[in-house]
């Protein structure tokens, strides 16, 4: 009864919201004709910052300070979920966790494919991270790919191996040092160029790997941080699965 009454109220409220949204949509700029200064932004980033991928130019240069905040959100969220999930886990150690999952359950095909794909995936991740200022990608995207490589090790059923290639302490250090590196570059801008996150490195030639000043540096810092944060979240959630399986 309570559920039905709640659904009725929700229907009314959502119908009103839908009407308001539809009304607002008619007042927006017509689709396909943006009113923002897109061309000016693109030209500024290409000619003054030498960044070919202007989306990352916006992320790591024009909105660099926001990205610092965004990175800290990710840092704190990864830390928060780790704290939440570790609470009450007790004194189980890594060895017990590694044994908790019956190793015979994983199919051989999955093991083989997983093991074969880890290498290419890590290479792809590193490529996406360091080419953030040139082609689609960047620190956030590449970091997630790198963390997915670690997940692949798990999918291949080698939890004991996961503990070896991905020691908990290293993941945490990667997360923290990525965030720290971003903050240091921000302070470097303050020291060498007079404003936080201002570009203080040589710009080089547009299109070269070493170009666009601090943008690739920040991209790599974010890549390290995201890899650490996502890997931390994934391992903490996987630990829960393992604990549930062994209980």
């Amino acid at each position: 009864m309570r559920v039905r009454r709640r659904s009725a109220i929700a229907l009314l409220a959502l119908a009103a919201l839908a009407a308001a949204v539809a009304w607002a949509a008619t007042e927006l700029t017509p689709f396909g004709t943006p009113s923002g200064p897109a061309d000016a932004v693109v030209r500024t980033l290409v000619h003054e910052r030498h960044a070919a991928n202007t989306v990352n130019g916006v992320t790591y240069d024009l909105r660099g300070l926001d990205t610092l905040g965004e990175e800290l959100i990710l840092f704190v969220a990864a830390l928060g979920s780790a704290v939440l999930l570790r609470h009450g886990r007790g004194e189980r150690d890594a060895g017990e966790r590694a044994e908790a999952r019956p190793s015979g359950r994983t199919a051989d095909a999955l093991r083989a494919a997983g093991a074969a794909l880890v290498g290419p995936l890590v290479v792809l991740g590193v490529y996406v991270v360091v080419h953030g200022h040139l082609s689609p990608g960047g620190g956030f995207q590449g970091g997630v790919i790198l963390a997915a490589g670690l997940l692949l090790v798990y999918a291949a059923g080698q939890v004991a191996m996961l503990e070896r290639v991905e020691p908990r302490a290293l993941v945490e250090v990667a997360e923290a040092s990525g965030a720290l590196a971003f903050a240091l570059v921000a302070i470097g801008g303050l020291v060498f160029a007079g404003a936080a996150l201002a570009n203080f490195l040589p710009f080089g030639t547009t299109g070269n790997l070493l170009s666009a000043g601090t943008i690739p540096v920040l991209s790599v810092a974010v890549g390290v941080e995201v890899t650490g944060a996502v890997a931390l979240i994934l391992t903490e959630l996987l630990d829960q699965t393992l604990l549930a399986g062994s209980a």
Binding site: P34, A38, V41, L45, V55, L62, G138, F140
Partner: peptide, 11 residues
């Protein structure tokens, strides 16, 4: 195409 909103979508 506007790069600012794409960066916002990334955030």
């Amino acid at each position: 195409v506007d790069p600012i909103v794409q960066a916002l979508a990334l955030t």
